[in-house]
Design a protein around this nucleic acid. Structure first.
Lengths: 204, 204, 204, 204
DNA sequence: TATGAATGAGAGTTCATTCAT
DNA sequence: GATGAATGAACTCTCATTCAT
């Protein structure tokens, strides 16, 4: 996407917000695919169709751009809404999020962004927190509470790990049949898996 | 580890094999932690206690060093022997390999090496194959054959994905309680999981 | 010459064209004197009074710089205009071009640039062609045509060889009295030589 | 040529002199073709079939090797003996030396070695002297004395320059028809040239 | 004597960044 | 606000050289 795309609302000469957004998407794409070191600002700027100096203007530095791209990463395994819960719903959401191209603006699964390190400690904290949150959310979605009793949280994090692993193996590495498995293909195994890991709490 | 470590047979200064090995381990450690681009040959040489030029001598180039490090990576999720199989044995092996520090010479779980790309296509093929092999092996260990019937291979690869994800979340990212979970902590959830994913084939 | 020299219109710090030109002249000078391998980009940049990275900016690489320097080399033994011809005029032009400092911007005789190889095949072709052209031009200037009859072209190339040798012996090597011979000193011997090599064609 | 070639006289295990000679020829070949900077000692050693360290043993350093190669260069345009002189004999000798492969052990014309600089001042003096000597010798061969009267020495050096130029254009650059001209092809033009440049002294 | 291990300096190249315009 | 000129540091790689064996 270039910065100076045609806008429906007439004027389109210099749209700062569009430029920022184009840079952000280009950066996200490259950071996810090539990592922090492998991404050059010149390429990001070229992808966005603007000059390199604008990156400094909008994001200050490469680190700033990375942080912004990280912040723009959608929640991993997040439930879109506070919808019906339980293992079956969870498995269905998982299969959809892992298989689908639910993020047309991201070339790869956005969770991969959470695995990219920039060397900045502050960034690492944010990445870690985002993944911890994913575990918490899965735990909640399964109908459990995070009271720390039992190993429910550990089990939820194993589910997060599975999601991470699937994203990795489907993208960078690419092994079949996992890479091209559809949501339908994944649904049954994931349902078995969720049921085994996070069975619904006993209802007295 | 430095190249000129004391050996059993007295002190020795010039030892090509020890130098090569020290370089290899230092490289593996940095490649796993920092990736291909993030790893500098100067740092690798410094870790090994030798000069940069020896990397050229022994490995030809950075790519050569990376390939050597990749080749030195132990098999992922490999059964140590052709021992008793079935879900329970598999779960136990998994918990041990994922939790343990079974590789004292590698700072991080060696499977992470398989996720590092160097840009060389030939390398990518090897990485992919190694992970495919892991899936095949898990399938065999569970008592199934890879006849392609059903979704057994897909299920086995989900197990591989889980292993990859656990390794990632325990190392680079580091989320608790998963990061410090012991093999014992992992055993029960993993047993549930393996049983759910790869139940023993029906024996009529 | 440095890049930031004072110009007629006051002092100027940022001038892409001046920088490019300063780099080109510095490069030409060093390539001619030291050859391709013997020339370091750091020294060229220092001569031009700028930083090394600008060479990449303007010329892409060392090869690019070399090609640019080669392209900036004036024609060897070229007649300035389509002026009167014949042996005497030719001898006079030769003596002037070989003796004079007709190229104040080049430290050495520019033909020496044509003797410098960079390893690039494409460059070699250009060098060869430039020297072939010199022979053709001398042939034409002597009043002959290049119909291939007789050994006129060979004789013209012997004249080119003489020019090359004189340039070499006057510059890099430096043998007296040839090195400091003036155009007047060279004129008489060269006239004898041209008359002997390329006598005017018989006019029936 | 390798160092351990079969020798007719029986023993051939470790012949220091043969090794030295093989190194010298390999060095000469590379220095002439690639120049000082372009020549690597490893390649020279490999050409000679020995290890690099022997260069240091026999010649001390790269400079030492270069000096030895320079010293081993045969005299340029030297009359083989103090045989019949005069313009015709001189032209005949010139055509033979410039055209022929009179030096089977040198890939290129050995005079090219005299054009190669190493950066060492002492070396430059030797090169200059060798070329000056060539001029003196031509002068003598033409029947003149170097009393300094007239411009005879300058004319002789123009002949040296011609020889240098022909060697250069026949080897590194390679322009036709000069490159493949035979001694017979060169004889007539050279005779005209020598007669014009160095006519026999008037005999009262 | 001869080999191979090891070094240090320097090469070209790349990149994030800063500074004028 | 935006561009492009210019910088300095860091990288991989190469090579002549030296040091033990």
């Amino acid at each position: 996407m270039t910065a100076h795309g045609t806008s429906a609302s007439g004027t389109r000469k210099r749209n700062a917000e569009a430029t920022r957004q184009a840079l952000l998407e280009a950066a996200h794409d490259r950071f996810v695919r090539l990592g922090y070191e492998g991404t050059t600002l010149r390429d990001v700027a070229a992808d966005a169709g603007v000059t390199l100096a604008l990156i400094k203007r909008y994001f200050g530095s490469k680190e700033g751009l990375f942080k912004a791209a990280l912040a723009a990463t959608p929640r991993f395994l997040g439930q879109e809404d506070d919808a019906p819960q339980g293992p079956d719903a969870l498995a269905e959401a998982l299969s959809r999020q892992l298989a689908g191209r639910s993020w047309p603006e991201f070339g790869e699964h956005p969770v991969l962004m959470l695995l990219r390190a920039s060397g900045d400690e502050q960034v690492d904290v944010r990445r870690r927190q985002a993944l911890l949150d994913a575990g918490m959310q899965l735990l909640a979605a399964s109908g459990h509470s995070d009271t720390g009793e039992g190993d429910h949280l550990l089990r939820a994090e194993l589910l997060v790990a599975l999601g991470v692993g699937v994203a990795v193996l489907r993208s960078t590495v690419g092994i079949q049949p996992l890479q091209d498995a559809s949501a339908a293909d994944l649904l049954t195994p994931l349902r078995d898996l969720v049921h085994a890991l996070l069975p619904p709490p006993a209802t007295p």
